[in-house]
């Protein structure tokens, strides 16, 4: 049911041209997927998705829209070539799913290695009831350290791109572009 909603929302995002509406649907999309994660027993993931996808992500996208513009100018018709590529790739992937283990199958390969040990030994070795936390912080501490480093780097990157004063206002820039199309419009230097 929720998965159906999710697909409908995604299709609506493709069809809409008002970017403000697209961003709002993006928030709804995240919230629905958070609901799906709860249904699939991933409470921690659902929590994160609800806070990040429906909160921070929407705010950042809206901030971008405020700095750029709110509608896209692409013509509405379906482009044949990309559609064909997507259709072929999609049918190949659907064909691949017939070899996948069905949902909730306890004999699936994913559940045979490492995970049973975490579930069995985590309470004794780490002593924390939430297995996700113990795997995240203790068994896979290196992994998480790397992830935090990526977040750190992304934050620094955004600061480098947007932290300084902006050189000229957009209007002045457009004026300059009109006067000197070659230099003003094509200038690649920051």
């Amino acid at each position: 049911m929720l998965l159906g909603f999710l697909a409908v929302t995604a299709i609506a995002i493709v069809r809409l041209h008002n970017l403000f509406a697209v961003v709002m649907l993006g928030g709804i999309y995240s919230l629905i997927s958070a609901g799906i994660f709860v249904e699939l027993d991933a409470v921690d993931v659902a929590f994160t998705e609800a806070a990040v996808g429906a909160g921070i992500s929407t705010i950042v996208l809206l901030g971008t829209l405020a700095l750029t513009k709110e509608t896209e100018t692409t013509p509405k018709k379906i482009k044949p070539m990309p559609f064909l590529v997507v259709l072929v790739t999609g049918s190949a992937l659907i064909y691949g799913t017939f070899d996948m283990p069905v949902l909730g199958d306890p004999t699936a390969p994913v559940h045979q290695h490492v995970a049973p040990r975490y579930i069995e030994a985590s309470g004794r070795e780490v002593g924390v009831p939430n297995i996700v936390t113990s795997v995240l912080a203790s068994y896979r501490g290196y992994d998480t350290l790397g992830e935090v480093t990526v977040i750190f780097t992304a934050g620094i990157g955004v600061l480098m791109l947007l932290g300084g004063r902006r050189p000229r206002k957009a209007g002045e820039k457009a004026e300059a572009a009109k006067k000197k199309p070659a230099r003003g419009a094509g200038g690649k230097s920051p």
Binding site: V43, D44, T48, V52, G55, V128, N130
Partner: peptide, 17 residues
Amino acid sequence: GDFGPGGGFQAGVIFAA
């Protein structure tokens, strides 16, 4: 976060929100 759902990632995001 040790006992229920939660942890540093979620808390950081909520705090920032």
